[in-house]
Design a protein around this nucleic acid. Structure first.
Length: 570
RNA sequence: GGGCCUGUAGCUCAAUGGUUAGAGCAGAGCGCUCAUAACGCUUUGGUUGGGGGUUCAAGUCCCUCCGGGCCUACCA
């Protein structure tokens, strides 16, 4: 029976173009896994979307001088185009502001309320008259009562790290406008009673012994810290968002309020599947999401950066479990640490690092995909430097893989023409080669299935190296002088490595894989086995010598990029 | 303050408690001449952050100290 895999990437926030750290922390590895699973014949639904609600989205729109809905629509289009540029193979790229998500979010809230898992809390929050809005704690600045730092935020002082309440600040002001015209107002909000589900969530997390430590340790910390899992506010006093409703009914006392972005964002994973159907791309989204409607055999895998783990291990499962309905729960969470940039952090707010649009403006997607995935921050934070990037892509892509394709196709053209040569037999060397490649193929598949990305990349690279080793030891250019038939056999086998490599490399570098296969006149396909794959191109099969697949990055260019991207983006 | 992760060759990273701690890159030497001056082979390089402990056996487990990072619930 065909495996069915549901894959979601953490949904990128709407307020700007994402940097390479964001990309490698969720969307790119999710795409790698989706491409691999499709290649292996699984039925895959791979979903992503933009996360469009919350205070930063409203502020970004205001800064751009646009209505927030228009701003979000425009930024969605920008992000969708960049996703395509990086060859992210989403089956659908949705929006958390979609009507489908409005309905589902309100539906879940209604179910949770019926189950007694929502409580109303009246609380005091800081309101800025000048800004005309309530201010989240960290949007209030003032002088730290502990250390005297004058840019302390309402949640914490960055200077002395002390945790604060906004009311602790001396001379508080709005971080948005600088206005000191603040007042404390009474406001009513809904809280999700996560505390009531603590034991269920804890048991569920404990059952996930195969999850990355990073994932489970963060979840357990939240479950067990202090008084245990706390209830979480799920509404806000904002204009932009999903109106608070109980299913399709009004919610008395909650008029004019919206659900908190992190309540509705993960529900978009589900709504996105409905969008996928409504966009005419699929027929039945519930068979992916409802275990009573066909999803019982679905394996659901989520990808995210470590900052997103609490929401995916606790809040979202609490929403799903609390609904009392048979929604699909996540089976595996792959979480990532951060990619740093030249000794510091990538930062969207500070404009530090390389952003997706900039990256594509200087190099094709495959360069970035290969480098980022082969250095994915799986066990700890990892570091991007221009020197390492240049060295690694030149060596791996241009010298090892690209040059292999170049040397054998050009050799064949010179001696036999642009067709797979006939004649000669395979001998012990070829038998050993096939055995070696088969062992490596098996290991590579195991790493990909386990989502061990760096190990998979290392094995793939080793598979590329095998081609060069074989050519060096077989030496068809020497043998050709005395025994052209034997040289033909060697050349035939080496040419067969190209479609083999194309199939295996496609999840990492899809464009290069397509051009390799195209040059050889075949489709990209996952090999059944090393043995069958290495006799796929019959004698007489025409091919063409491909263009240089990966131009090398020279030192001057690298230095220029390092300078250009050293500062902050305006 | 608390919790978690992390520290291994110049760099990036591997090593179910079990031979002499391994790869890639960078460096050195040799070879090859088909190829994008590419490729192959050989090789240099380690008190596994420091100290203590458990064990027949510790990079791995425990304690402690030092360094780096993340999270800490109203950014998302």
């Amino acid at each position: 029976m065909m495996a069915r895999i549901l894959i979601t990437s953490a949904i990128p926030y709407i307020n700007g173009i994402k940097h390479l750290g964001n990309l490698v922390g969720s969307q790119l590895p999710a795409d790698l896994y989706a491409r691999y699973m499709r290649a292996r014949g699984a039925e895959v639904l791979f979903l992503c979307a933009t996360d469009e609600h919350g205070t930063p989205a409203e502020l970004a729109a205001a800064k751009a001088g646009k209505p927030v809905d228009q701003y979000c629509a425009e930024m969605w289009a920008v992000q969708a185009e960049l996703a395509q540029g990086f060859r992210l193979s989403f089956d659908h790229f949705g929006r958390s502001s979609s009507p489908q998500n409005h309905r589902l979010t309100q539906h879940f809230a209604g179910r949770l309320a019926d189950a007694g898992l929502i409580r109303e809390v009246s609380e005091k929050q800081v309101y800025s008259n000048a800004d005309g809005r309530f201010l989240p704690d960290r949007y209030i600045e003032g002088t730290c009562p502990n250390c005297g730092y004058d840019k302390a935020r309402g949640d914490q002082c960055e200077n002395c790290t002390k945790q604060l309440d906004p009311t602790d600040l001396i001379n508080p002001r709005s971080a948005i406008s600088g206005s000191t015209d603040l007042e404390v107002r009474e406001t009513k909000h809904l809280y999700l009673r996560q505390s009531a589900m603590r034991d269920d969530l804890s048991a569920w997390i404990d059952s996930k012994s195969d999850w990355p430590v990073l994932t489970t340790s963060i979840a357990k910390k939240w479950l067990n810290d202090g008084d245990g899992l706390q209830d979480r506010g799920i509404t806000r006093d904002l204009d932009w968002g999903i109106p608070v409703k109980k299913g399709d009914q009004d919610w008395p006392g909650m008029e004019g309020k919206v659900f908190y972005v992190w309540f509705d964002a993960p529900i978009e994973y589900i709504a996105c599947a409905a969008e996928w159907v409504d966009a005419g791309k699929g027929a039945d989204w519930e068979r992916w999401w409802r275990t009573d409607k066909g999803a019982e055999d679905v394996r659901y895998v989520q990808f995210m950066g470590k900052d997103n783990v609490p929401f995916h291990t606790l809040s979202f499962p609490a929403t799903i479990l609390g609904s009392g309905e048979p929604w699909k729960l996540v089976d595996y969470i792959k979480s990532f640490n951060y990619l740093n940039y030249d000794g510091g952090q990538f930062s969207t707010s500070q404009g530090r690092g390389v952003f997706m649009d900039q990256a594509l403006s200087i190099l094709p997607a495959d360069y970035w995909r290969w480098w980022l995935l082969s250095h994915a921050p799986e066990t700890s934070d990892s570091e991007f430097t221009w020197e390492a990037f240049q060295q690694d892509v030149n060596k791996d892509l241009a010298d090892v893989l690209g040059n292999f394709v170049s040397r054998i196709t050009k050799f064949c053209r010179a001696k036999f023409g642009e067709v797979v040569p006939d004649g000669g037999d395979y001998g012990p060397q070829e038998i050993a080669l096939v055995a070696d490649l088969q062992a490596r193929l098996t290991r590579y598949q195991a790493h990909m299935e386990a989502i061990e990305i760096r190990k998979a990349a290392a094995e793939l690279r080793a598979i590329w190296v095998v081609g060069n080793e074989y050519l060096q030891s077989a030496g068809p250019w020497t043998i050709y002088k005395d025994d052209p038939d034997r040289a033909a056999a060697i050349t035939r086998l080496a040419l067969n490595l190209i479609p083999f490599y194309a199939g295996l490399s496609a999840p990492f570098i899809p464009d290069a894989a397509a051009s390799m296969a195209g040059a050889m006149g075949v489709d990209v396909a996952w090999p059944e086995s090393a043995e069958t794959a290495l006799s796929a191109l019959p004698p007489g099969h025409a091919f063409r010598v491909p263009e240089v697949m990966f131009a090398k990055i020279d030192d001057d260019t690298r230095a220029e990029w390092a300078r250009r991207f050293a500062g902050v983006r305006s």
